[in-house]
Nucleic acid binder design. Structure first.
Length: 861
RNA sequence: GGGCGCAUAGCUCAGUUGGUACGAGCGCUUCCAUGACAAGGAAGAGGUCACAGGUUCGACUCCUGUUGCGCCCACCA
């Protein structure tokens, strides 16, 4: 074996073996339980980013449950991501100087199919590099024929139940994509703009001033609104205003939505292009005028010089026209929120348009109830409230998009105007038999299809074996940005169609940020490719990093140092293994441990192993992965390698017990670590004596409380503390005098028994059996009740002792004040008071011994 | 306008029910080519836990407020 572990030489080989042998498929359950996770399907818009590496958390859970003996299934797949993919493809076309319109529908569809075939594959390969143990044989795509059938089924059912309707409403319109998008897909950004104060003349004299950030929309005004209780405008309510430029007569209405404090307290009402105004318009039955085209140009034939201009060009012209009519009072700088399309960045225009909607109120009720009753839990728990409040304030869901990519809405209308949703493409109208049918041109919101993911991937609506066996799933892990967009919708659709929650625990992992704290994004150049990271540090180290930070609930700055430290950890495990296996003949069977021959150090490490086992299990159970890997790192590196292996080195040649214990502890540690770092653990496990053909199916370790001896732990801790103090002392002494005899005076058993003395000798490299020569200068160190003398001349010996004594005295003082306070002794728990008393006692003893030593050593003074 | 999160060692971050700040990684100081590992070992230095009040015998931890970052929701044009 080399002295260094090389992940690149190991990882791919093991992954291929696992996959060939079918280890990722669920096996028979040993516990009677199944454990299922539905992988959030990555968009096939390209390649994975560090956010996808966080799916490691899912693999940790899956691998852990597989070892527990559950029938564990991780269902992978990809999402066609209608709008996102369309954007990517359109950009590619633009680079070639063409557009989808020039290409035509058929060529476009071919292009889409090619894209699916190639990128889907890339993503799956990347996930393999991460070591994901998903069952690839069950891989699904949201465009699979059976998936399409399921979507149709859901649509038709909802249609039949009257939960789907079509109608004109104001929607967020993306002029670039020329499609409606949902509220959740609008990104607001603070933008510096201007606030224009316009004077609208009132019929019969006077003017009313209104403020607007979008003066061009005044052409679509159909009213002016004021607050009903606003004394300034009370007399104007019901009067008529003459709209400048067009000279249209529009009413002044009173509406509570108006904010008296803002601007002039009077607002122009443009129901066709503003959400609030649309609602005011509904309340006052105002006409809706559409003055923009779908691609964001002015649509005002009555003003020829403006008609057809893009908004940005029309605005200054309108301002000029208003100024000419003396209708422009002033312009102020104004900072406000402007909505942008999540996917393409274009400025969103509210538009009235006919769209398909799902009635949400009936669906939301059960989705609220399950969270309230804790059938649906969130980790961290604080995500429960945002989920609930979103569900409680939910609005109808716009499920139609005007895109070229996606699932077509399965509604056909006949020549007689009968619109019906069909499961299968119809040849004649269900209602009148008419054969002139045309399908609705719109496609479905991507989230409509992906919200069926956990159950459709298992075969629903067919009653499949997989569905019965693996549904509902247990855990859903995702980033917080799709909590409403996706998670919430899976919940209500599963409850509606399958009457169960799709998963019982929602794990929200942190978002990976760039090292400087900015968002990772390709356009900012802050993105990090997980494959790069894997190529440099290996998949295990990358996974360990994800695991450590993933479940803290905080966002995570990308930090290579920490990833690198896990690679060093692998190296530590590698070398510990190397040390042990060279003491063994090739192909050894696991060595039995003869309990009768255990020495204190052996019992200690076995006890610590048991405690760590418990810690790791409980961390995984509570979705607190960070503490779990931390405990393993600390234990394996420091307690096992630094302390235990060093302790037993003198015994390794002669004594089988030490070797057997060491191998057992290492092998168990590898099993505990396997869900997080699958490759290095498999590689080392295979080299150690083991039972079974893969660590993936090795049993999950259980703690053994009977071997955990608290007094022994305490003794060892003290022993190690003494050793540290001795080394410290030696460190400050003359290096040439390293090996010197020593005397230890201690009431602690491990230090007074020969066996304890030998450990100390090993660790501190001191000859404890030697006696100090008469009159030799001595160094003295006091640790609790133990005193160690070394035959080392140490400068400023008494100065050091005096400093220590000072420290002890301060401690004693603080403790005495505390213990003399009757409030403390009376009110604090007994155990706490006792502990403080013990501390005081120990400090007093140490102080006494220190002052004694100062008295007896005049020659070093 | 509401809500949430974060401010702890030079840097990046842990810290589970209030009881000596147990800290980790990187960095820093000193020593060590000793037969697992120099991608290592050993010993160290480094903290008024953002600030101000309050509750408590005791607060990094609970409450109130302040400041600075970040995020979410919302129809102030």
């Amino acid at each position: 074996m080399e002295t260094r572990y090389d992940p690149q030489a190991v990882e791919q080989r093991w992954y291929d073996t696992w996959e060939e042998r079918g280890y990722f498929k669920p096996r028979e359950s040993l516990t009677g339980k199944t454990f299922t996770i539905s992988m959030p399907p990555p968009n096939i818009t390209g390649e994975l980013h560090m956010g996808h590496a966080m799916y490691t958390l899912q693999d940790v859970l899956i691998r852990w449950h597989r070892m527990l003996g559950d029938s564990a299934l991780w269902v992978p797949g990809t999402d066609h991501a209608a709008i996102a993919t369309q954007n990517v493809l359109e950009k590619q076309l633009a680079k070639k100087g063409t557009t989808k319109e020039k290409l035509g529908r058929e060529a476009w569809d071919r292009l889409v199919q090619e894209w699916y075939a190639t990128t889907g594959h890339t993503i799956l390969q990347q996930m393999r590099r991460l070591g994901f143990s998903a069952d690839w044989s069950r891989n699904r795509f949201t465009m699979d024929p059976r998936y399409v059938e399921a979507i149709r089924y859901v649509f038709v059912q909802l249609w039949k139940e009257g939960l789907i309707y079509r109608g004109p409403r104001i929607v967020n319109w993306c002029p670039r994509d020329q499609s409606a998008i949902s509220d959740l897909e609008v990104q607001y950004e603070e933008t510096d703009g201007q606030l224009y104060y316009l004077d609208y003349p009132i019929e019969g004299g006077g003017v009313i001033s209104v403020a607007t950030a979008r003066p061009e929309t005044m052409l679509g005004d159909t009213a002016v609104a004021v607050h009903p209780d606003d004394w300034r405008y009370k007399d104007l309510i019901g009067k008529t205003v003459i709209l400048p430029i067009l000279h249209r007569r529009i009413p002044i209405v009173a509406d509570e939505a108006v904010d008296r404090e803002f601007g002039t307290g009077a607002v122009k009402v443009t129901p066709g292009h503003d959400v609030t105004d649309y609602e005011i318009g509904e309340r006052h039955h105002l006409p809706i005028l559409t003055i923009l085209t779908l691609d964001g140009r002015m649509n005002v034939p009555e003003v020829p010089q403006l008609d057809g201009l893009p908004i940005a060009k029309a605005r200054p012209q309108i301002v000029e026209m208003l100024r000419a009519e003396n209708a422009l009072q002033k312009i102020e700088p104004y900072r406000h929120n402007v909505g942008h399309c999540d996917r393409c960045g274009a400025v969103i225009e509210p538009m009235v348009s006919a769209q398909w909607w799902v009635k949400m109120k009936p669906l939301a009720g059960p989705a609220i109830a399950v969270a309230e009753m804790d059938e649906l839990r969130f980790h961290p728990e604080r995500w429960r409230e945002p989920y609930l409040s979103w569900m409680r304030n939910i609005r109808d869901w716009n499920i139609s998009r005007q895109l070229w990519l996606g699932h077509r809405i399965p509604v056909w209308t006949c020549a007689n105007g009968h619109a019906v949703a069909y499961l299968k493409d119809p040849t004649e109208c269900e209602q009148c038999g008419n054969q002139q049918l045309s399908q609705d041109p719109d496609v479905l919101d991507t989230w409509f299809s992906s919200s069926l993911w956990p159950f459709v991937t298992l075969g629903w609506p067919e009653d499949t074996g997989d569905l019965r066996r693996f549904y509902p799933t247990q855990v859903l892990d995702t980033a917080r940005d799709i909590l409403y967009l996706w998670v919430a919708r899976m919940v209500f659709l599963s409850l509606h169609f399958l009457h169960v929650v799709p998963f019982s625990d929602v794990l929200i992992h942190g978002t990976v940020l760039a090292a400087d704290g900015r968002r990772m994004s390709k356009s900012l150049g802050t993105g990090v490719d997980p494959l790069d990271v894997i190529n440099r540090y290996g998949a295990d180290a990358t996974r360990a990093w994800c695991t450590y930070f993933g479940t803290t609930g905080q966002d995570i700055r990308f930090s290579e140092d920490k990833i690198k430290s896990y690679q060093l950890f692998e190296n530590k495990l590698w070398n510990a293994t190397r040390l042990l296996i060279r003491k063994l003949p090739e192909g050894s069977q696991p060595l039995p441990i003869d309990e009768a021959t255990l020495e204190p150090a052996d019992t200690w490490i076995l006890g610590r192993l048991s405690a760590v086992t418990r810690q790791v299990s409980s961390g995984l159970e509570r979705f607190e992965f960070g503490p779990a890997i931390d405990a393993l790192y600390e234990f394996a590196w420091h307690e096992f390698a630094d302390d235990y292996l060093e302790l037993i080195k003198p015994r390794l040649g002669q004594n089988e017990t030490a070797l057997a214990v060491a191998i057992h502890v290492l092998e168990t540690t590898l099993r505990l670590l396997h869900p997080i770092m699958p490759f290095v653990t498999e590689e080392l496990w295979q080299r150690l004596p083991h039972e079974g053909e893969t660590i993936m199916y090795a049993p999950w370790p259980l703690p053994d409380e009977t071997i955990e001896d608290e007094r022994l732990m305490d003794e060892m801790a003290h022993l190690l503390e003494v050793v540290r103090a001795v080394r410290n002392l030696r460190h400050s002494a003359d290096p040439r005098a390293r090996r010197q005899p020593a005397e230890v005076t201690s009431p602690r058993p491990l230090l007074t028994q020969p066996v304890g003395r030998s450990y100390l000798a090993t660790l501190a490299q001191l000859d404890l059996n030697g006696t100090l020569p008469e009159g030799m200068p001595q160094s003295v160190v006091v640790v609790g009740q133990t005193t160690v003398r070394l035959g080392l001349p140490v400068q400023a010996q008494n100065q050091r002792l005096r400093a220590e004594l000072q420290k002890k005295r301060r401690e004693i003082e603080v403790l005495e004040v505390k213990l003399n306070n009757p409030d403390f002794t009376g009110k604090a728990p007994k155990a706490v008071v006792e502990r403080e008393r013990a501390r005081l006692h120990e400090a007093q003893q140490a102080a006494e011994r220190l002052s004694g030593l100062l008295g007896e050593n005049p020659e070093v003074r």
